[in-house]
C-alpha cells in the first residue's frame, strides 16, 4: 500500500476534519495513564501516540458494557453513528479480530455489533515503546498493525506516516489529500527503525517464547500448578473486564412501563454464579475450576475454533490484577 506523510502541523487539522463527521477518540495522558478520550476542538490537543495501549479497551466502543439489544413486544433498534478511534495499538486489534469472528462470522450475526463495526473507523498507530507488561509478540502479533484497522500510522520526527489498510481508509486519505505529502525514503527508513526497535524491546522484555504446543500444554496443565498460580487471586475480576478479547455477556430483562427491554451486559467467567443453572447445580463452583476454564478458553478452545489465541498480549490483566498474577509466567511454566 502507498505511504503518505501527515506533517506534524497538519495532525490537528486532520483530527478536526474527522471530528466534523463523527466523534473522534484519541489517547490523552491523565494521571500517569493514557485514556481514550473524546477529541474536543476547544481543548488543548496533545500527541500521545508513542505511549502503549490506553487503559480502556476499544471493545467499549463496539460492544458497550451495557447495551439494549431488544425491546418487547415491538422491537426497535437504535441506529449507531460514525465514530473514529485514533491511535489504537495492534494488541487491541486482536480483540477486534476475536469479536469479528464471534459476532460476525459465527451465525447468527449480531446486528448491533455489525452496525457499530461498520460505523467505526479505526486508525491504528505503531507501538514504538512497549512496556514491561507487554507481550503481543508471544501471541503472534507485532507491535504495529498490518490488518483489521482502516489506516495505520507510525509517528516519525516530521509527522505521522500513514498507510491505508482498507478501502475506507484509502478514501479518508484521498478526501483529505491536501493535508498529506509523499513519504520520502528517509521517512520510510525511520519507520523500519522504529519497528525494529519495538520488536527488539519486546524480545528483551519477554526473553522466552510460548511453546509451540501451548494449547496442548494448557489442555493438560497440572491442576496443582494451576491452583498454586491462582493463589493470589482475590476474585476482583479486573483481568476479565479489562481484557480486550473477553466477550462473555449476560442478557437480563428490565420493565419499562408495560413493555420491557433486553439488556446485554458484560459478564466474566470468574463469577461464581456464571455457569450455575436454575436448579442450583454449578459445573464450576470452585475458583480453581473457573481459573482453569479461563486459560482453556483463551489458549486452547478459541485456538481450536479459530486458530488464534483469545489473548492480545496487552498486559491489562497483569496491570489490573490485585494479586499481580502474571499470565505469562503461568504459560511459560506449563
Amino acid at each position: 500500500m502507498k505511504l503518505y506523510l501527515l506533517p506534524s502541523d497538519n495532525i490537528i487539522h486532520f483530527i478536526t476534519k474527522l471530528a466534523e463527521d463523527g466523534p473522534v477518540f484519541y489517547p490523552v495522558f491523565e494521571d500517569d495513564k493514557v485514556h481514550l478520550n473524546k477529541f474536543d476542538k476547544d481543548k488543548k490537543f496533545e500527541l500521545n501516540f508513542e505511549k502503549i495501549r490506553t487503559v480502556e479497551t476499544i471493545k467499549h466502543f463496539l460492544f458497550p458494557s451495557r447495551d439494549v439489544v431488544a425491546k418487547f413486544p415491538k422491537d426497535a433498534q437504535k441506529k449507531t453513528e460514525r465514530q473514529y478511534l485514533v491511535g489504537v495499538k495492534n494488541c487491541d486489534l486482536r480483540g477486534i479480530d476475536v469479536y469479528d469472528k464471534v459476532f460476525l462470522d459465527w451465525e447468527p450475526i449480531d446486528f448491533g455489533y455489525k452496525q457499530r463495526r461498520e460505523n467505526t473507523i479505526i486508525i491504528s498507530a505503531d507501538c514504538p515503546e512497549p512496556e514491561d507488561c507487554c507481550f503481543c509478540n508471544l501471541v503472534g502479533l507485532n507491535p504495529f498493525c498490518e490488518s483489521i484497522s482502516d489506516i495505520n500510522f507510525t509517528q516519525v520526527s516530521s509527522g505521522l506516516l500513514f498507510e491505508a489498510i482498507t478501502k475506507k481508509g484509502d478514501e479518508i486519505i484521498n478526501k483529505m489529500e491536501d493535508l498529506f505529502t509523499g513519504a520520502s525514503k528517509e521517512v520510510q527508513q525511520q519507520r523500519d527503525k522504529i519497528r525494529k526497535h519495538a520488536i527488539n524491546k519486546l524480545n528483551k522484555i519477554n526473553k522466552k517464547s510460548f511453546k509451540k504446543d501451548l494449547p496442548k500444554r494448557v489442555e493438560k496443565a497440572d491442576k496443582q500448578k494451576m491452583h498454586n498460580a491462582r493463589k493470589d487471586c482475590v476474585e476482583c475480576h479486573a483481568c476479565l473486564h479489562a481484557c480486550p478479547t473477553c466477550y462473555c455477556f449476560l442478557l437480563s430483562d428490565y420493565k419499562r412501563g408495560k413493555n420491557f427491554e433486553r439488556v446485554r451486559t458484560w459478564d466474566a467467567c470468574y463469577y461464581a454464579a456464571y455457569a450455575r443453572v436454575g436448579g442450583g447445580a454449578n459445573p464450576r463452583s470452585k475458583l480453581d475450576e473457573r481459573f482453569w476454564n479461563r486459560f482453556q478458553c483463551k489458549f486452547n478452545y478459541f485456538n481450536k475454533y479459530e486458530g488464534i489465541y483469545a489473548c492480545s498480549g496487552c498486559g491489562r490483566c497483569y496491570r489490573g490484577c490485585s494479586g499481580k498474577i502474571d499470565i505469562r509466567e503461568i504459560l511459560w511454566n506449563l
Partner: peptide, 8 residues
C-alpha cells in the same frame, strides 16, 4: 522477529 503462531 519471528512470531509464535498458535498451533491450529
Amino acid at each position: 522477529m519471528e512470531s509464535v503462531n498458535p498451533v491450529k
